[in-house]
């Protein structure tokens, strides 16, 4: 179709197009937002209001009591100390796991693009393979590996009086998430560094920078966009993980948030406190939301402008 016929299109059909497009967008936005809306209003209502009222109605007398209860008093299994301890468990797991997997992914990407060796394609191919392994299939082998870690921890405890982190559930989860995150983080960074000007690395070599100096001073400071992408991706995945968490840290006070939330909701004693459950679920979802809002702002393009050419 030529430009002339596009311009000659009747104005009426263009308006209709817009209505259809925005109408569809609105419908989908509602589909996604209504559950969130229900969660939010329910978490601000009292139990009698929930039992007698409409799910979609706004709270008559908004209260943050369910949030306070979820944070500090809700029962997870038999202990009724709220979810705050498990929230910190998750933080303690997710921060090191994201940091380590991102850093190692960046290092892998750097080596696979700027310090190529024979067989680099095979190595990268095998790392990519990690992205396609279903997590369920590694549960048992990984449990064996973690069991060995536990044994090692006991040996260390006998020898030095401390286990050096071996056998600790949080450390175990960090290890699992780093291992299974590496495939993705390597993929992200390799593709980003593939387009990174090699002349910059050469210039740094002539300038006398070593392997790690080039990585730290030249590559990393110019990788902000891909770091943000990787961090968002890894943080969301690891924070939301339930399978590994319930398999390797599924009980006691080492549970991460996701497992604890499941236990809060599944508690069989007394009435089901929907408002507390909703508040707990919201609290569990907050960090990923926050990371997206904060990091998303640094999702800037064009950081490489001015590196090469004019």
């Amino acid at each position: 179709m030529s430009a002339a016929t596009v311009g000659a299109r009747p104005a009426g059909s263009r308006v209709l197009n817009r209505i259809v497009i925005y109408g569809l967008l609105l419908v989908f936005a509602l589909v996604y937002l209504i559950p969130f809306f229900v969660m939010l209003v329910t978490s601000l209502k009292t139990m009698p209001e929930i039992q007698n009222g409409n799910m979609l109605a706004l709270p008559k007398d908004p209260t943050i009591q369910p949030w306070i209860k979820a944070w500090g008093e809700a029962c997870v299994g038999l202990t009724c100390e709220g979810i705050h301890g498990y929230f910190w468990n998750s933080i303690k797991m997710v921060v090191p796991a994201v940091a380590i997997s991102t850093l190692l992914g960046a290092l892998n990407g750097y080596v696979l693009t700027k310090w190529r060796f024979k067989g680099h394609k095979l190595v990268f191919g095998l790392m990519l393979f990690a992205c396609f392994i279903p997590f369920q299939s590694v549960l048992l082998p990984m449990a064996t590996v973690l069991g060995q870690f536990g044994q090692l921890g006991k040996v260390f405890t006998n020898a030095f009086g401390m286990n050096l982190g071996f056998g600790n559930s949080t450390v175990n989860l960090v290890f699992v998430h780093v291992v299974y995150g590496l495939g993705f983080t390597t993929l992200f960074f390799r593709n980003y560094y593939e387009a990174f000007p090699t002349e910059l690395v050469k210039a740094a070599m002539v300038d006398g920078a070593g392997f790690f100096q080039i990585f730290r001073r030249v590559l990393l400071p110019n990788s902000l966009p891909i770091i943000v992408v990787t961090v968002i991706y890894q943080f969301t995945n690891i924070w939301n993980d339930f399978l590994f968490a319930s398999s390797y840290a599924g009980s006691g006070d080492v549970m991460p948030m996701t497992v604890a939330l499941n236990n809060v909701v599944n508690t069989s004693t007394g009435v089901v406190e929907y408002n507390v459950n909703m508040a707990a679920a919201m609290i569990a979802a907050l960090p990923t939301l926050l990371v997206y809002i904060l990091a998303g702002r640094y999702f800037v393009r064009g950081l490489m402008a001015g590196a090469v050419k004019g």
């Binding site: 000007p197 030249v218 110019n222 001015g306």
Partner: peptide
């Protein structure tokens, strides 16, 4: 270098 290769 041809591209100048300045560290951005």
């Amino acid at each position: 270098f041809q591209s100048y290769a300045l560290y951005p």
